[in-house]
Each structure stands twice: as structure tokens, then as C-alpha cells.
Design a protein around this nucleic acid. Structure first.
Lengths: 351, 351
DNA sequence: CCTTGGCACTCGTTTGGTGAGAGTGCCAGG
DNA sequence: CCTGGCACTCTCACCAAACGAGTGCCAAGG
């Protein structure tokens, strides 16, 4: 398998490359004749047919039906991406647009949302940005604001700059001063810990004797636990933008396929699982057709990249589109946006 | 025009009613024969044809082509809704679901978002909830939290329970104590005023002499203005949910119509304009086809209702769907959800 | 040994035509 | 005013034929 890159001789590689590129450009099955007319080869259609027949035997090409041209298979695309593709650099303009857009906002959630829109627009595909729950990340501060009798707004700021608000309803009565103090205490005590840690610490504290006597401490702990609880339920941690761009893709012209595709995009859980699995890997990931259940069933491809600070990946950004897409353009695009987000987050952290 | 309800005799009305109902149920053009077979009339197809021809002359019906059955026109639907429709009450179960869902959350934004989902699900149409900017509404409190050096989270709570957060970047340095004080001051000074008022007051204050000398007051005013500025840019004040349900509607089976429709839903500005125009009216509003540019071009109908507290409408909730929809069911549904939201908001206010 | 032109074969797509079916409009008679 | 009858129109489904695109294979030529 590791020799796969060697399996094809130079000419076969060129032919495969050309077929993929033409097919991506036109969307149609490629015939030996159109390939010969392209001018890249000094060969007759008949010779090309022989090469193409070989490529088909090896599983890189397929025919929709006898007497149609050939289209790349999953395997063909995969080979193309690994060994044949020449990435098309982003234009100066594109890079500027991205830097500007990503650099612009201050609230991370907002920046992420904008990023998915931007991605969708530049790629003309569905843009996805995923941010896993804050639970695994460290906090910088935690504050409480009295909003109404028995209603308290809790503001948690992560070291990565993510801001989460949540309204807590409680039977306990707090004055503004108390809340102020509690905020200071928790921030001081738990700075740099993850919510998960904090939660466990707080629970342990409830069991300690000392706490049972100090009324104020009791209230603090109660409020703290409330605040940390269910942060995961904060929704909108998956942004899917530009679903309408699917409509412009001819491969989804049959209404049924389209309907299925849309419903698939609605099933956010599955999408989240999939993106989560992209989270650990460091570089750019490309999932094609049969690579995963999700893409297999719906004939999608996914180009995704983790973003985050240094060694800690925070989330995943990527695009979803038909298998036939311009990988040579999409790959650098997603890569660049991922990097831009990482830079942004690292900047945030340093403040 | 006010006599329109009288323009048709009893039989014609019955026929129109029956045609609309059958067409809504089946989606097909209704022929004289199928109408006769329905059993509601003791007439032969030929007689019904005469009645139908009259209705067509008056503009209530139309034929897609010669020798097809007849379909209601905009005007036909409008007449049906105004004079012929018998609203179908909501079931006990539906009412319970709504009450529960709407009563559940605490943050208004969240409640509204849920409402649009709920609406989309119950109606099997696109659900829309619109909340205009806070600018016109009174505030209950305003608080500031130091998030990082030079970054301040501003929390504004409206008397209607809406909570808005916004991060402000500023060159000025504030301590936590100062922020606490400023919050108290502004809340005390401006309680019950609209953001618009507050803004003008603050600007006027900058010009007063007294302010020029008091350093602290200067900082307060600067921060206050920052906070009030651009509240309108907070997005997500329009929730559009369940766009995929359009895919299930046969009238949008041609891919082109579908594409257009989706793009239309993306154009949030136009949609906002339209919904804004529904805001002033008190009761339930139904816009059909040619009633507005938006619905005209895309062959939509909109069923909408204002919600809010007592005399002050806060926003609009409604559904968007094809002209052919079950108005008899949609109308009470939208109405009920609108009322539920209003109740919720009034409750919020009293706290 | 590779390349190439030729040729038969396969399929999908388009075209034209035909017939059935559904529905209307109109008319004349009850 | 209602109704049955009849001619007319339009759509749709179906079928056959022609067409075109593309392949596979083979035999001849460098």
C-alpha cells in the first residue's frame, strides 16, 4: 500500500491527472477523444483508451455505463490528491480578505461564525466551523451579574478568548456585592483550570467540613456548580453556512438527492461526531466518499482542518461539497483559514 | 370593495370554499367532475362548470391551461380567508406543547429561537421569528464586566427581559470597582429609558461643562456611549428555521423555483423589511402572493403575528410557505404562538 | 513492443407520432 | 335554471426509429 504512489507509470499518472481535472472542471464523463483533443498528449484516442482501460482495471476510474466516458472513483480522487495535485495558491486578494475578516471581531464565537460564512462564500460550498464545548478548556475569569431578582448572568471567559454567558435561576438571594466577591474568589481560585476540573473541585468542597460552616462559601459553591453545569448545552457550537450553495451543484439536480443532502446537513449530531474525529489530526484532512459513513452515503467530500493554539486543538473548520470539487483550490483555502483562526486565538491568549 | 363579501351568492361561495379546500389538500387542479363527486353538491358537473366559469370571470379561479381543472388565485385565497374559512382549533396536545416549549427557557433570545423551531415543526413550513433591535425598548439595567485588559463586556437587560451582551474594546483603563460603580450609576440614572434616549442624553452630557471637570464622569459617559452604539449590529435577531421543509413541497419540485426560493430566504434584509411592516398591525396578518413584492415574486404566502407586551409590539412571529397552505390550521397556530410569546414576555416584565 | 486507424457494438438521448384521458365550453332540450 | 351530449383542446405516457457518443478489439505499421 505504501507503494501506491509508484503503482502507475508516468503516462498513466498524467492521464489520471488530466481526467480528474477535466472532470472537475466540466462535470462530465471524460472520453478518450476529448482527452486527445486537450492537446496534453501526443497520442491518439485509441492509445488513450488503452491507458484508461488499465486505470479502470486498477480501480481509479469508472464508467457510469458502457459507452459513456470515464469518471474518477474515490480511489482516483484520493490518488490525485496524494500524488498528482498541484495546489493552487490563494491570491493576494483572497488572503487579504481572510486576514481582514478573521482579524476583525473580538468575540470568538462571532469570529467563528464569520469564518464559516466567509468560507462558504470563497469556496462556494457549504462552510462548517465546529467548536467543541468549553468544558475541556481553561478559564481566565468568571463573573456574575444580577439581572433580576433570582436571575444571575454568569460570564465565563476562557484563556482562548471564548466568552460564554448563561443565565442562572436560583432560589438563593445574592446582593450585587456578594456576586462581585464570588466572582473574584472563583476567578482567583480556579484561574487556568478547565471547567471539568473546577466542577470536580467544587463538588469535593461541598463535602468538606469547613465549607459547611461558612455560609458565604456555601453560597459560592452552589452558584459555582450551577454555572459550570450544563455549559455543554450552550448551542450554536456548530456553524453550518451556505447550504444554498449546494443547490447550484449539478450533481444534486435530482430533487431526491438534494432532499437527502439537506436532511443530512440538519443532522448535526452526526456531523459533530465526524468533525470531532478530525480534531486530533494535525494537518489538513480530506475525506472522500467511502472514507466515512457520512460522506459515503451522501457522496460528499469534506476538507477539514483543526485550529487552535499550539498543541491544543480547539475546533475544526472545513467545507462540505460534492465529491467532484476543486481540491487544488479548496485545500489551501481551508488550510489558510484554519491557520488564520489559530493565529487569532493565539493572539487572544496572549492578552 | 367593502362589499366584496357580498359579491358572491351562497352557492358560488360554497363552490369556491370547496375548491380551495380540495386544492389545498391535494395540490391538484380541481375539475367540475371531481367537485361533483365530492358529494357536497346535488349538482351535475355541467352546472358546476357554469359556476366555476363565473368564478373565473370574477378572478377567483384560474386555469393552468385549457382543459385542466381550476386553481384558486391570490384573490380566491384572500376571499376564502376573509369570508369562508373555518379555523381549525388547535388540539389540546398542540397547545400543551407550545405552552411548555415557550414557558421553558429564561433567555428571551433562546425562547424566540425555540419558538421558530417549534413553529417550523408544527406547521411543517419555514418558521420565522423576528425581533427588532433593542434600540426602541426600555432598559432595566446595564452592567460592565472586565474581561481582559482593555476589553469590557457590557450586559444590557431590557424591561422585556431581553439580554444583550457586547464586548467593547477601549483605550481607557478601568478597574473592576470603577466598572461596578459606572454600572450602578447608569442603571440608576437611565432606568426605564430607551437606548435611543440614553444615547442622546449621554451625548448632550458630554457638552455640559460640569462633565468636563469630573474625570470619572467623563469615563462613564465615554463607556456608556460605546455601549449604546451599534447595538443594532447584534445579529441573530431574525431566526429562520426549517428551510428544509420547503423541499417537501411539490410546488417547488422544479429545481429552478427551489433555488430561487432558497436564495430569497437568504436575503434577510428584505425579509426583515417585510416583517417590520407587519409589526404595527395588531392582529394576525396573512400576506398572499401579490400582496407584497417579496411574496409576489416567489409565490409565497406569509402568516404572521406581532408579539410583545400590551401596547408595545416587540417583534413578529410567523411562517412562510407556498401559497397553497392550510390557512385554516396555520392561522390559529401562528396566533397561538404569538400569544404565548406575548404572555411570556409580560411575565418577564413583571419580575 | 507500442501506436494507430477502422469497425462493430452498446447505450443513452432525442424526435416524432399516436392514442388515451381529462376537462372545458357551448348548445339544445327538459 | 339544470342537465346530458358533443366537439374541441391540451397533456401525458408510450413506442419506435434515428442519432450520436463512446468503447473494445483487431490487424497493420513504425
Amino acid at each position: 500500500m505504501s507503494q501506491q504512489g509508484e503503482e502507475l507509470d508516468g503516462r498513466a499518472r498524467e492521464v489520471l491527472r488530466e481526467i480528474v481535472m477535466q472532470h472537475v472542471a466540466t462535470g462530465e464523463a471524460i472520453s478518450s477523444r476529448s482527452l486527445a483533443k486537450g492537446g496534453h498528449f501526443q497520442l491518439s484516442p485509441a492509445s488513450l483508451r488503452n491507458v484508461m482501460a488499465d486505470l479502470e482495471d486498477l480501480g481509479y476510474l469508472a464508467q457510469p455505463h458502457t459507452s459513456a466516458g470515464r469518471v474518477p472513483t474515490d480511489r482516483g480522487y484520493r490518488f490525485f490528491i496524494n500524488y498528482l495535485m498541484k495546489s493552487r495558491m490563494l491570491t493576494q486578494r483572497e488572503r487579504e480578505t481572510i486576514d481582514e475578516q478573521v482579524g476583525h471581531g473580538t468575540e470568538i464565537d462571532h469570529v467563528l461564525h464569520e469564518a464559516s460564512r466567509l468560507l462558504s462564500r470563497l469556496a462556494d460550498q457549504v462552510g462548517v466551523v465546529f467548536m467543541p464545548t468549553l468544558l475541556q478548556f481553561a478559564i481566565r475569569s468568571m463573573d456574575f451579574v444580577l439581572v433580576a431578582e433570582n436571575k444571575i448572568l454568569c460570564v465565563i471567559v476562557g484563556t482562548n478568548g471564548v466568552v460564554v454567558n448563561k443565565i442562572i435561576e436560583t432560589r438563593l438571594n445574592f446582593t450585587r456585592d456578594e456576586l462581585e466577591k464570588i466572582g473574584r474568589y472563583i476567578t482567583g481560585e480556579f484561574f487556568g483550570l478547565t471547567l471539568d476540573h473546577i466542577r470536580r473541585r467544587l463538588v469535593r468542597m461541598t463535602e468538606e467540613e469547613r465549607a459547611m460552616q461558612d455560609q458565604m462559601l456555601q453560597k459560592t459553591i452552589a452558584l459555582g456548580i450551577e454555572a459550570v453545569n450544563d455549559v455543554r448545552t450552550i448551542d450554536n457550537d456548530l456553524y453550518v453556512e451556505g447550504a444554498a450553495s449546494i443547490l447550484t451543484k449539478p450533481e444534486f439536480s435530482e430533487t431526491m438527492a438534494l432532499r437527502k443532502t439537506f436532511l443530512a446537513l440538519q443532522e448535526k449530531e452526526k456531523l459533530i461526531d465526524l468533525l470531532n474525529s478530525c480534531l486530533t489530526e494535525d494537518g489538513l484532512q480530506i475525506l472522500i466518499g467511502s472514507d466515512s459513513d457520512f460522506t459515503h452515503v451522501h457522496n460528499f467530500s469534506i476538507v477539514a482542518k483543526s485550529y487552535g493554539s499550539h498543541n491544543a486543538p480547539l475546533g475544526v473548520v472545513g467545507i462540505i461539497g460534492p465529491m467532484r470539487m476543486e481540491y487544488a483550490r479548496m485545500a489551501p483555502l481551508v488550510d489558510y483559514i484554519g491557520r488564520a483562526l489559530s493565529r487569532k486565538i493565539e493572539e487572544e491568549e496572549q492578552q
